[in-house]
């Protein structure tokens, strides 16, 4: 039986939920199966975990407003969608962790809570993305679009930077907890990190402006290329750096660490972060 999206409102909503759960799985599984995140779930600072959980709320609301489960126009609807995504993230994380035998009944409640709470952050972002990226367009809506072309949607400058931040955060959460990020920063010499900075910036710029992906940004012929570099790519790199620092700090990777080492870890994490930020601009 093929599920039709153009059914009753309840059916539509159920399908939306399933897509969200699918998204939580697709985007969450790499993290749900990362050893470091299990131990971080109970070992990381509770204050920082709480902060991460709180930061996730406005983040989901803004994300919901842009791409949500249904096209949301009011704040109330965005909050509702964000709540659903967070809920889906929690349920999916708990289910997968139980399935994999990482959560067992003899564990203290504190450990359960910590592990599920930490995983629910990336999973809830995944749930939100799943709805937007997996959801095919309705046949009905397509017809409507043919009849009356929708007005072009204008994204604020800071909205654009925000989207880059989400992309960087998502990839950052994926890789920052792993031992490898720290190990790589120890193995790299400052020359390597100089190269990494330049390559990251070039990738960010290339992803969005040079390679003709779907959703590529176009520049007017009159506008020189460096305009976009200064206005979007460089601020994007700074946003990515801030997100990297935040994620590293959250996982306690910066405690009692020298400044140069902090910068090195940041540059390492900026590499995946830059790719995440650039793809967020294309996808979202």
């Amino acid at each position: 039986m093929q599920l039709s999206v153009s059914g009753s409102p309840t059916q539509k909503f159920t399908i939306g939920l399933l897509r969200g759960a699918a998204g939580a799985l697709i985007f969450g599984i790499p993290m749900l199966m990362t050893m470091e995140l299990w131990s971080l779930g109970f070992s990381m600072s509770r204050q920082r975990l709480l902060l991460l959980l709180l930061v996730n709320i406005p983040l989901l609301v803004v994300l919901a407003h842009r791409i949500g489960f249904e096209r949301t126009f009011t704040l109330r609807e965005a909050v509702r969608d964000a709540t659903i995504a967070y809920g889906l993230g929690i349920v999916t994380s708990a289910a997968v962790l139980s399935l994999l035998g990482i959560l067992t009944v003899d564990m203290p409640a504190n450990e359960w809570l910590g592990k599920v709470a930490l995983q629910s952050v990336p999973a809830s972002i995944g749930a939100m993305l799943g709805r937007s990226q997996l959801g095919g367009s309705d046949p009905d809506e397509d017809e409507e679009e043919d009849e009356e072309p929708e007005p072009e949607l204008s994204t604020g400058y800071f909205g654009e930077l925000f989207m880059m931040g989400i992309g960087a955060l998502f990839l950052g959460l994926n890789v920052a907890p792993t031992e490898e990020i720290i190990l790589i920063s120890y193995k790299m010499t400052p020359w390597h990190s100089l190269a990494a900075i330049l390559v990251s910036i070039a990738l960010m710029h290339g992803f969005v402006y040079a390679v003709a992906f779907r959703g590529t940004h176009q520049l007017d012929e009159k506008t020189p290329n460096w305009h976009a570099l200064v206005r979007f790519t460089l601020p994007g790199y700074v946003v990515t750096s801030l997100i990297s620092l935040y994620v590293l700090w959250t996982f306690g990777r910066l405690d009692d660490t020298g400044w140069t080492q902090v910068m090195m870890s940041m540059v390492v994490l900026n590499f995946p972060g830059a790719v995440g930020a650039a793809s967020a601009r294309l996808v979202l």
Binding site: T216, Q218, D220
Partner: peptide, 24 residues
Amino acid sequence: TITSRKDHSHREQQTPGPIEWLVG
């Protein structure tokens, strides 16, 4: 940035505000 929902492409506006240059 102007995003068109139809072909999912974006076009940067040619007159950026001063805030964009400042941030840049």
